[in-house]
Design a protein around this nucleic acid. Structure first.
Lengths: 228, 228
DNA sequence: ACAAAAGTGTTGAGAGTACACCCATGC
DNA sequence: GCATGGGTGTACTCTCAACACTTTTGT
C-alpha cells in the first residue's frame, strides 16, 4: 500500500462542530443553527462546517465560533471525534467536535447569519437535532460538568466581574444541584482563584462585592477539584 | 457552498494511530513500528494506518491493534485528534489517536510484521519518532497517569490474577513515584474492586495471595479517584 | 536459622459537611 | 421599618498520610 494507492482511495469529508454553552435566564443554553441544505435540511444542528485543507482543526473551530457568535479569544477545547460511517448517509463525514463556554450577554448570536437561523436553546428543551448531534451534545454536557468540578471553567460563563452569588448560581445551574452558601464561599475563596475588584454591585438588597478571576491562578486550579 | 462544491475540495487522508502501553522489565513500554515507506522512512512510529471508507474509527483502531499485537478485546480509548496541516509535509493527514494498555506477556509483538520492525520501547529511552508522534506519546502518557488515579485502568496492565505487591508496583511504575504499602492495600481493598481468587503465588519468601479484578465493579470505580 | 517477601493498625492533621443568624441597602 | 439579597463561624466526621514490626515460606 503506497502513496499512489492511498490517493486512489476515497477520502472523507472533514468538519468541525462547535458546541457553544452559555448561561441565559437561569438555564444552561447551547447555540444551534438551522440547516439550510440537505441532508437534514431545516433541522437544528450544532454549528460547524468543513475544515479548509490548509487550516488547523482548532483554527477551523475558532473560525466557526467567530462566524456564529462574533466572539474570539474564548476557552475552546477538543471534545471528541465522531466518525461513524453511517452518520451521514450520503458521504463519509468525520466531525471533530469542540466545545466552549461563553458569557451569554457578550454574544451577538446572529452576527453572520439570518437571525431566523441561529438561536439559543435550553439544554432542557432541545428540538430534534440533525445527524448524531444529540450524542455530541450529551457528551459535551458530561464533559462540561466534569470540568467544572476540577477546573476554573465556571468563570468563562460569567462576565469579567461577578458576585459570589452569581458564581454559585452558575455552578448550581451547570451541575444541576444546590450548594451550601457558606461552604461554597469558603472553598472558592481559599482556593485563591478569585480576587475582589474593589467595586460593588448595587440593586435590590445589600450591595454585593464584585470579584474577578485571577489570571495567574489557572495552573494551580487545574491541579485539584474545586467542588465535591 | 453545496455538495458539488464540497466534492471539488481536496479531502484529507484519515488515519488512526494506536498507542499501546505495557509493563515490561519494571518499566512502562510502548509498542513502536519502523516505517517502511516515506515520509519518515526507517523512523520509528506509533502503529497506525488508513481508515477504510466504510469502517468506524474505533474499528480501525481495533484492527490495527490486532494486526500489531494479535490482541483483541482490550480496553481502548480515543485520545485526541491531531490534524495540523504541516504534520505531514506531502499531504493533509488527520490522525485520530487511540490508546490502550495491555498485559505484556499476552502479546506477540511481531504477529503480522517482520520481527525487525515491531518492538517494545521503554518510555524513558525512546528513539527519534516520525511526524508529531512525540507529542502524541506525551499526551497519551499524561492521560494514562491521569486515568490511573481515578479509574481501574491499572488492572489492564496485569494478567487476570495478580498479587497486591504486583499491583502496587504497577501503579508505582506508571506514576513514577513510590507508594506506602499499608495505605495502598487499605485503599485498594476498601474500594471493593478486587477480590481474592483463593489461590496463592509461591516463590521466594512468603507466598502471596492472588487477587482478580471484579467485573461488576467498573462503574463504581469510575466515580471516584482511587489514588492520591 | 536466616533470607526474602507478605501481611498487618494506630494516630494526628486537614478537608468536607451540616447548619442559622445578622448586615447593608432601597423603597 | 421592612423586604431583599449579602455576608459570616463552629462542631463533627471522615479521609489521608506517616510510620515499623511480625508472619510465612524456601533453602
Amino acid at each position: 500500500m503506497d502513496r499512489q494507492q492511498d490517493n486512489l482511495r476515497q477520502r472523507p469529508l472533514l468538519t468541525v462542530d462547535v458546541v457553544i454553552f452559555a448561561l441565559r435566564e437561569g438555564d444552561l443554553h447551547v447555540l444551534l443553527v438551522r440547516r439550510k441544505r440537505p441532508p437534514h435540511m431545516d433541522m437544528w444542528a450544532i454549528p460547524g462546517g468543513l475544515v479548509e485543507l490548509d487550516e488547523a482543526l482548532e483554527a477551523a473551530a475558532v473560525r466557526k465560533l467567530e462566524e456564529e457568535t462574533g466572539l474570539c479569544d474564548v476557552y475552546l477545547e477538543q471534545l471528541y471525534t465522531f466518525g461513524d460511517p453511517r452518520r451521514d448517509p450520503s458521504d463519509r463525514l468525520i466531525s471533530v467536535a469542540y466545545f466552549c463556554v461563553v458569557p451569554a450577554n457578550s454574544v451577538v448570536p446572529c452576527a453572520s447569519e439570518d437571525a431566523e437561523h441561529v438561536r439559543w436553546w435550553s439544554i432542557y428543551g432541545l428540538p430534534p437535532l440533525a445527524f448524531d448531534h444529540p450524542q455530541i451534545l450529551r457528551y459535551a454536557l458530561i464533559r462540561l460538568r466534569y470540568k467544572l468540578e476540577y477546573t476554573a471553567v465556571g468563570f468563562e460563563l460569567l462576565p469579567k466581574e461577578f458576585t459570589l452569588t452569581e458564581l454559585q448560581s452558575t455552578y448550581e445551574i451547570v451541575l444541576g444541584e444546590t450548594l451550601d452558601k457558606r461552604n461554597f464561599r469558603r472553598k472558592i475563596l481559599s482556593a485563591g482563584v478569585i480576587e475582589p475588584s474593589g467595586l460593588q454591585r448595587t440593586g435590590e438588597g445589600r450591595p454585593a462585592r464584585l470579584y474577578r478571576y485571577r489570571e495567574d491562578a489557572v495552573a494551580e486550579v487545574k491541579a485539584r477539584r474545586l467542588f465535591p
